[in-house]
C-alpha cells in the first residue's frame, strides 16, 4: 500500500469510526429517560451496536496509521477539528421525533453504505461492513417504523416530526459529500462512490415519508463540513463530556 493510499484509508476509517461513536454517545444520553421501557432497551441496544462498530473501525484506523494509537487514544485524545463524524450524528437528541428521524437518516445511509462496502477489496473493511450491516438493518427498521407511527399518529406527533425535519434535513447533504480521500480509495476499489448510493437512500426516505404522510422539503441549502472536521458547535460540548476522565488523568489505565 502506498503512503498516499494508507493516509487516505486512515482518514476514511476515522470517518467510519467517528460517526457511530458520536451517534452512540448521543443515544446514550437517552438511557433511563425513554418514553416507554421498550424504547429504553431499544435505544440502548442501538447505542451499543454503534459503539461496537466505532471500536472496530477506530482500532483498524490505528493499525493503518501504525503509530501505536488505540481506539481509546483516537476517541478520547483528539479535538473537535480532528473528528470526522457526520454533522447529523452530533445534532442534539431533541424530542423523540428528532432522535428517531436522525436515526432513520443515518441508519438508511449506513444500510446502503455497508451493503456497498461489503464488496471492498480491503478484507477488514469488507468483514466489518458485513457484521455492521446486520445491525443497521434492525436500526433502520426500528427507526422507520417509528417515523411512520409518528407521522401517521396524532396531530401533535406529526407536528413534532415536521419540526424535526426542519431541524435535520439540511444536514443530510453532508452524508454524501466526497473529497480527494474518496477519489483515491474509490479508484483502488476500497470504498464505494457515495453518489451511487444517493438514489437508494432517497427512495427509502421517500417511501418511509409516504407512509408517514410527510414530504421531503424542497430548496433547502445543504450544510457540509464533516469531511474537513468543520462541525456544528454541539460537538465540542459532547467531547468535553466524553473525554473528561481521559483528559483529567492523563496516562491512566481504566
Amino acid at each position: 500500500m502506498t503512503d498516499k493510499i494508507s493516509k487516505a484509508l486512515f482518514e476514511y476509517c476515522l470517518r467510519l469510526g467517528d460517526s457511530p461513536l458520536i451517534l452512540g454517545q448521543r443515544l446514550g444520553e437517552w438511557c433511563g429517560h425513554g418514553p416507554i421501557l421498550e424504547e429504553d432497551i431499544a435505544l440502548t441496544n442501538i447505542a451499543l451496536d454503534l459503539i461496537g462498530q466505532s471500536r472496530a473501525f477506530l482500532t483498524y484506523a490505528g493499525e493503518i496509521e501504525a503509530k501505536g494509537r488505540t481506539e481509546d487514544d483516537l476517541a478520547f485524545l483528539r479535538n473537535e477539528r480532528e473528528f470526522r463524524n457526520l454533522l447529523l450524528t452530533e445534532q442534539p437528541n431533541g424530542d423523540f421525533a428528532q432522535t428517531m428521524l436522525r436515526q432513520l437518516f443515518v441508519s438508511a445511509f449506513q444500510y446502503y453504505f455497508y451493503s456497498a462496502l461489503k464488496l471492498s477489496k480491503d478484507k477488514t473493511l469488507s468483514a466489518l461492513a458485513e457484521k455492521s450491516l446486520k445491525e443497521v438493518s434492525y436500526h433502520l427498521r426500528h427507526s422507520a417504523q417509528w417515523v411512520i407511527r409518528l407521522g401517521d399518529g396524532t396531530s401533535e406527533s406529526k407536528a413534532r416530526l415536521e419540526n424535526a425535519l426542519d431541524e435535520l434535513w439540511k444536514y443530510t447533504g453532508d452524508l454524501f459529500d466526497m473529497d480527494d480521500t474518496d477519489t483515491i480509495l474509490i479508484k483502488e476499489g476500497i470504498v464505494p462512490d457515495l453518489n451511487l448510493l444517493r438514489e437508494d437512500w432517497l427512495d427509502k426516505i421517500s417511501e418511509t415519508f409516504g407512509l408517514a404522510s410527510i414530504s421531503i422539503p424542497e430548496n433547502v441549502f445543504m450544510m457540509s463540513g464533516s469531511r474537513k472536521g468543520k462541525h456544528t458547535e454541539h460537538l465540542g460540548h459532547m467531547l468535553s463530556e466524553m473525554q473528561y476522565l481521559q483528559r483529567a488523568f492523563p496516562g491512566a489505565t481504566w
Binding site: Q25, E29, I51, R55, E71, F76, M242, L245, W254
Partner: peptide, 11 residues
C-alpha cells in the same frame, strides 16, 4: 454512560 473512560467500559 456519556463519561465512561474507555470505549470498552462505555459498551
Amino acid at each position: 454512560i456519556t463519561r465512561a473512560p474507555s470505549l470498552r467500559r462505555k459498551a
